[in-house]
Write a protein that binds this DNA or RNA. Sequence first.
DNA 1: ACTGAAAGACGTCGAAT
DNA 2: ATTCGACGTCTTTCAGT
Lengths: 161, 161
Amino acid sequence: MRFIENNSALALDDIDLRLLRMLQVNSNLTTKELAAKVNLSTTPVFERVKKLEKAGYIKNYIAVLDAEKLNKGLMVFCNVTLKAHTRAIGNQFVKDIVSLEEVVECYNISGDYDFLLKIMVKDMKAYQNFVLNHLGGVKNIGSAQSTFVMGEIKNSYAIPI
Amino acid sequence: MRFIENNSALALDDIDLRLLRMLQVNSNLTTKELAAKVNLSTTPVFERVKKLEKAGYIKNYIAVLDAEKLNKGLMVFCNVTLKAHTRAIGNQFVKDIVSLEEVVECYNISGDYDFLLKIMVKDMKAYQNFVLNHLGGVKNIGSAQSTFVMGEIKNSYAIPI
DNA sequence: ACTGAAAGACGTCGAAT
DNA sequence: ATTCGACGTCTTTCAGT
């Protein structure tokens, strides 16, 4: 399946929003099932979903895996500052971070730190290895402060719409 | 006594891992396409995927939406401490937080704070409203410190396996 | 455990209201 | 903008190896 990137803004009606809400929780719903839930037939629902894909409201469809079962049960948030804030140093940092697969999310943030990283590894030993051998290899990091996740209270991949 | 296969640990071979890696990036791949990539016919691939679903390695299938387009473009990380750390207060906090739809993730963390929340709202005005009228209504919050996301460097929903 | 084939369901799209 | 109908493809299962 291929999506054509089209950044136009669409006027979403209530049915579009309901379709998005359902699909972001379970994308295995068939067009038929979706149609039944919004009281329409399959064709308009099919076309609406395609429209939402083409317009970029739906970016992609993915399987959500169980991190614990796959031995990536330790999540760490790492606050990072850079030694300097030149464009070159920032760009290099971004490039380095993107290539580290343990870093599943990275944001440029306000406040005392420059970047916030979400890292997933097997356990504390693996995290130590990550810090020493991977994060340690990234240039121009001024400081890095780790916060460990002890328990997951809520993690809905769904956007509140 | 009979064991139901749900949630048991399985021995995953290389092909299982490759299937998981592909599906967590694009779950719209057909059994046929997956089969071609791992050089098998459809039947074993179909059965492997079903096995991975039943065993809980695949938790669900979802559509990933574009937060910006859906007017939830402001992401905020909020560090929260509780006034006291009794079980009752903790449980009540968890219950309250789970019901706030703007809070898309919530973790119990180590360090200076007790909880880390990831919040998605439209803009700063909406965040102010969230803090005043929603987070403000949650009992026993000692302090709350907000960190604003200025830019997203990386966000792969994929677990590094 | 895998291959190949076969039945049924679904996605997909054109024509029509 | 929705319904109907038809085609191709995918899912799902069942023999056979």
